[in-house]
Every structure is written in C-alpha cells, then in structure tokens.
Amino acid sequence: MIKFFRKIRKNLLNEGKTTKYFKYALGEIVLVVIGILIALYLNNQREAYTIQKQQENYLGQIRGEMINNL
C-alpha cells in the first residue's frame, strides 16, 4: 500500500502537477488526523468503561461492609 502511494506522489511531482500533489498531500494528512482522532475516542471510551467497572466494584465492597457492620 505504501509503495502505491509513493508511486502516485512521484508521478505527480515528475509531471509537474504540483496543485494535484498538494491536494493529495492534504488529503493524506486529513486521513491521518481522522485516524488519530478515532484512536483517541476509542481509548477514552475504554478508559471510561474501566473506571465505571471500578466504581461498581467499590460500591459493591462498601455495600458488603455495611451489611457486615449491621
């Protein structure tokens, strides 16, 4: 896949089509940014899930202690 994109870049630069090359480069940058944002979103969702599970676990432990103390 990388070879394919490298070939496109070289062809655009060799043919003197700099405006098309800049459009291509901008598109590639946008795709990378979108990928990073998706990865950050998924990481935040996973973190929130683990925090929620910890809270549920702590609440269960507190409930168990309260029942034992009564």
Rank of each mutant, 00 (worst) to 15 (best):
V30M: 03
I38S: 05
L26P: 00
K53C: 05
K20G: 05
L42E: 11
F4Q: 09
G64L: 03
M1L: 14
E47Q: 09
E15R: 13
L40C: 11
N69L: 15
R6K: 13
A39I: 02
I8F: 01
K17T: 01
K17A: 06
Q52T: 09
V30N: 06
I51E: 09
A48F: 04
G64Y: 01
R63L: 09
G16P: 04
R9E: 14
E28N: 13
N57F: 08
V33N: 04
Y21C: 01
Y24N: 09
L42Y: 11
N69K: 15
I2D: 02
N14A: 14
A48M: 09
I36L: 15
E65K: 12
L59M: 07
F5I: 13
I51T: 09
N69G: 02
K53L: 11
K23T: 10
R46H: 06
E56V: 00
I67F: 13
R46C: 00
G27L: 02
Q52N: 13
I36Q: 10
N57Y: 10
N44T: 04
Y41T: 08
N57V: 00
E28L: 05
L70I: 08
N44W: 07
V33F: 11
M66R: 15
K3V: 03
I62W: 06
N68D: 15
K20Y: 06
K53Y: 03
L31F: 10
A25L: 14
R63W: 06
Y24S: 02
T18R: 13
G27E: 01
Q45G: 01
G27D: 08
K7G: 01
K53A: 15
Y58F: 12
L37M: 14
N69V: 13
R63E: 10
K23C: 04
L13A: 06
K23M: 09
F4V: 07
K17Q: 07
R63T: 05
F4D: 11
I67P: 04
K7R: 15
V30A: 11
T19Q: 14
K7S: 15
N43F: 07
K20R: 13
Y21T: 00
T50A: 03
E56C: 00
I51F: 08
K10I: 11
M66K: 15
G16F: 10
